[in-house]
Simulated assay, not measured.
Amino acid sequence: MKLYTIGFTKKDARTFFGLLIKNNVKTVIDIRLNNHSQLAGFTKGKDLEYFLEAIAGIKYHYFIQAAPEESLLKNWQDKKITWSEYETAYKAMLVKRNILDRVDLKILDDGCLLCSEPTPDQCHRRLLAEYFKETIPDLEIRHI
């Protein structure tokens, strides 16, 4: 079972959709807190859902329950907490929200977690993917 992750920042539409197609992604799982901002460009919620289907036959699933709490994200962005503190708080939030009970694990197979960060290093999509791997040991995570 493969689970991909991708960030749209610093990617143009050709690169973004090309990576999804090249990796045979079946469902994009949007885990952004705000998927309708003007900064989202071609990845704005309803537009992205349309583009994914029209360009590549990929399904779209908005999974806001996996987005970080606004205060947690702001504290990290404002450097009020360290990345390590963010990781700990985000993982605790996943447990508190019973994330594993709120997701159909079938969509993870050839699914792709979407967020805005250009790399997974300091992004909640990596943390979420690793959280899923704790429950699904044969899950292979690929950051594209």
Rank of each mutant, 00 (worst) to 15 (best):
L3D: 09
Y4H: 04
I6V: 05
F8L: 03
F8H: 14
T9G: 02
K11Q: 10
D12V: 06
A13K: 15
R14I: 14
R14T: 08
T15P: 01
T15A: 10
G18C: 05
K22G: 05
N23M: 07
V25S: 07
V25K: 07
T27Q: 00
I29F: 05
L33R: 11
N34F: 14
G41D: 14
F42E: 02
T43G: 09
T43L: 00
K44R: 13
G45P: 09
K46W: 12
K46E: 15
D47K: 12
L48F: 08
E53G: 01
G57H: 07
I58W: 06
Y60K: 03
Y62L: 13
I64H: 13
Q65S: 00
Q65F: 10
P68A: 06
S71N: 12
L72W: 03
W76A: 01
D78C: 01
K79V: 05
I81A: 08
S84F: 09
Y86F: 14
T88N: 08
Y90K: 03
Y90L: 12
K91P: 02
M93K: 14
L94F: 14
V95A: 06
K96E: 15
R97E: 04
N98T: 07
N98K: 15
N98A: 11
D104M: 07
K106S: 15
K106A: 09
I107T: 11
I107V: 13
D110C: 08
G111F: 04
C112P: 02
C112S: 04
L114R: 00
C115H: 06
S116C: 11
S116D: 09
E117N: 04
E117T: 01
P118Q: 14
P120I: 00
P120F: 00
D121V: 13
Q122H: 11
R126T: 09
R126H: 07
L128P: 07
F132R: 03
T135K: 05
D138Y: 09
L139E: 08
E140P: 01
R142M: 06
H143P: 06
I144Y: 10
I144Q: 02
